[in-house]
């Protein structure tokens, strides 16, 4: 079967700075793919490029294809993109507190998602469907009449999820959907996201910096650093046998595995946008860096499983 989402050679620039360079990414039907990395690694920009909602002055180049849409998404005009957004492709953003219109009842905001694309016959049907969607995210029917400020962050994020899933999109993109939430409601929202995409056989692209979340939600993972994909593969493979030194550092810095080892940090900080070193973008923070790292490492492995590192970690040492 062909991929639901296929991103080829995606490059995002703002004026003279390159923020994302040459990203390849595919998501298969019903597949749940994680996109991880520190802030500033280009994860969100990658997602916004797919959606065509980059901020002003930020320009995407390359190719983005989506199943069910017969045109290229990069550079498509507003008229065409507006038919794709919310219908074939939906997104849940990081900040639930500000993602909903404060002056509109949430029921109307959910119903609107269906009315825009005429996926329901009329207003009455849209409201009935909205009640149904609320039920799926475990919110009572009375929530229809509530305004966003009357709901908690977790409740609001469930509303955003409900309206994102309203038209059974082929692909759902979630950008740090639980980062702004209390730990106690994170698990519920994650569970509802997974249930939601599974029930619709939608594919999921899940952006986060939380490795534990990726481990529970996703099947495959891409690691981004400095606007590039530095490693990718099945979650189990990448998390237990990382090859790229950045992935290795990221894992050591998280408490994913119950090691007796103390958590270690990656030395240094993520450089500001456009100031990453030439060659391997990680070399100024990498303990293993040598002269050869000033040339860009080539991709080793297959399109879906591989890494880009001159001095990869030995498979045996972590096996």
């Amino acid at each position: 079967m062909s991929d639901v989402l296929s991103v080829r050679g995606l490059t995002v620039t703002v004026r003279d700075k390159t923020l994302v360079s040459d990203v390849d990414l595919t998501v298969g039907p019903g597949e749940r793919v994680g996109l991880i990395g520190e802030s500033g690694s280009g994860k969100s920009l990658t997602a916004l490029s797919v959606l065509g909602l980059l901020p002003e002055d930020v320009v995407a180049a390359g190719s983005v294809q989506l199943t069910g849409v017969d045109h290229e998404l990069i550079g498509a005009d507003e008229r065409r993109m507006s038919r794709v957004r919310g219908r074939h492709l939906a997104m849940v953003f990081q900040e639930p507190m500000t993602a909903l219109n404060p002056t509109m009842r949430v029921g109307d905001q959910i119903a609107e998602a269906m009315l825009i694309h005429r996926t329901v016959p009329g207003r009455r049907a849209a409201r009935a469907a909205a009640v149904e969607l609320l039920g799926r995210v475990q919110l009572p029917r009375e929530t229809m009449r509530a305004y966003p400020h009357q709901l908690s962050g977790g409740q609001r994020q469930r509303i955003v999820l409900a309206l994102a899933l309203a038209n059974d999109p082929a692909l759902l993109i979630c950008d740090e959907p639980t980062t702004a939430l209390d730990v106690t409601v994170q698990a519920l929202v994650l569970d509802l996201i997974v249930k939601g995409v599974v029930a619709r056989s939608s594919a999921l692209l899940f952006i986060t910096h939380d490795l534990a979340v990726v481990a529970t939600v996703c099947e495959r993972v891409l690691v981004m650093y400095g606007g590039r994909v530095v490693e990718s593969g099945p979650v189990e493979e990448v998390f237990t046998r990382p090859r790229h030194r950045y992935t290795e550092g990221l894992l050591a810095a998280s408490d994913l595995e119950t090691n007796e080892r103390r958590l270690t940090t990656i030395p240094g900080n993520v450089p500001p946008a456009g100031q990453f070193p030439s060659g391997c973008v990680f070399r100024n923070r990498c303990r293993h860096a040598t002269d050869v790292c000033s040339t860009a490492p080539s991709w080793t492995g297959t399109a879906s499983t591989g890494f880009a590192c001159h001095h990869p970690a030995e498979v045996t040492t972590h096996a």
Partner: peptide
């Protein structure tokens, strides 16, 4: 943000 949400809905 809610305007971005509205755009993401397809408006």
């Amino acid at each position: 943000d809610y305007l971005r949400t509205a755009r993401a809905k397809g408006l």
